[in-house]
Simulated assay, not measured.
Amino acid sequence: MPDFDVVADVSETLRSVVTAGLSTLMPPPAPTAEVVDLLRPVQSSSSAKVTIFLYEIAEDPSARNRPYLRRPAGADVELQRPPMALLLRYMVTPWSGDWSTDQKILGRVLQIFYDNAILSGPQLQAGLAGTSEAIKLTLAPITLEDRARVWYSVQQPYRLSLTYEARVVNLDSVDIQGARRAREVAAQGAEASA
């Protein structure tokens, strides 16, 4: 059951999947992926890397208004709000110092996310490992103006990058209410016939 740390768990899952997928790029050393907040400058190093930046969290409108979950609790029933379905929007950026290598890295990331459009089972990391959750990845381009705003907001120069949505990420509610089971149903207005 996904808890409040589910957002960080999805980020860690993406980092792991991208790092594993980039391991096939030649020549070595292969780029690695890291989750960043872009508020601090990305450390330049001799090896290429890919940053994964969570820039927006939203509620998935297609999953709103789901019914309460009912669970037996002895002779009664517990009612729990359904999980909040989240959309996580990520910006994936290569950092190699060379435009050609950056574009090759972006091409490989596109392949990785296309081939692994639904992450589940052993691909899931951290608190999602061993759960039945599935994360659907979709390329979600934003306008150049919106992309420039993201870079401007973190006071970094614009860089070529990809934007992806991860959905449906469920965040469990802690709102649980007790309810009594109905024991008898009485029909009102019905008279007994003799």
Rank of each mutant, 00 (worst) to 15 (best):
R71Q: 15
P82F: 00
P41M: 05
V50H: 03
A85C: 05
A126H: 09
E34Y: 01
P28C: 03
A129W: 11
Y114E: 11
V6W: 01
D76W: 07
D37P: 06
A63E: 10
T143Y: 10
P61E: 05
K104H: 13
L119G: 06
Q188N: 13
D146F: 09
Y68E: 12
S11G: 08
I52T: 03
D102T: 00
S45Y: 04
I105W: 00
F53R: 01
E145T: 09
Y55H: 14
A190F: 11
L106G: 00
A134D: 07
V10T: 03
E59T: 12
S173K: 02
P122A: 09
T32I: 10
S16H: 10
E191L: 07
I52A: 05
L124R: 01
R70W: 06
G178D: 14
S16G: 04
R147V: 05
L124G: 01
Q103L: 14
W99Q: 08
L39K: 13
N116F: 03
L128D: 00
I118K: 08
L171D: 05
L14I: 06
V36H: 03
R71V: 11
D146K: 10
R66L: 13
T51Y: 02
G97D: 00
S16T: 11
L79A: 03
A8G: 12
T24G: 02
F4Q: 12
E78G: 01
A48C: 06
T32K: 09
D98E: 07
A63D: 09
R183C: 07
G74Y: 02
M91C: 08
R147C: 11
R40V: 12
D76Q: 14
D172Q: 09
A73M: 13
Q188W: 11
P61M: 08
L69K: 08
Y90R: 04
Q155T: 09
Q80D: 00
M26V: 13
E12D: 09
M26Q: 15
E133H: 09
A140E: 15
L14M: 12
Y164T: 01
P61H: 02
P157Y: 07
G107W: 02
E56C: 04
A194Q: 10
G127K: 08
E191V: 12
P122Y: 07
Q155A: 11
K136R: 13
Y90S: 00
D76R: 08
V150P: 04
I135F: 09
P83V: 00
I118V: 14
P141M: 11
A190L: 14
T143V: 10
R159E: 06
R183S: 15
P72L: 05
P41D: 15
W151K: 03
R71K: 11
A187R: 11
L22N: 11
L14S: 01
E133M: 04
E191H: 08
K49F: 03
I52G: 03
E59G: 02
P157W: 06
S46P: 06
W99T: 10
R147E: 13
S132T: 13
Q177R: 14
R89E: 08
I135S: 04
G189F: 06
L86N: 02
T138R: 13
P28K: 13
A186P: 07
L128G: 00
R183L: 14
D60A: 04
P31L: 07
Q43G: 07
L124P: 07
F113Y: 15
S161M: 06
L128N: 02
S16C: 02
A192F: 10
K104R: 14
P2F: 04
A85S: 12
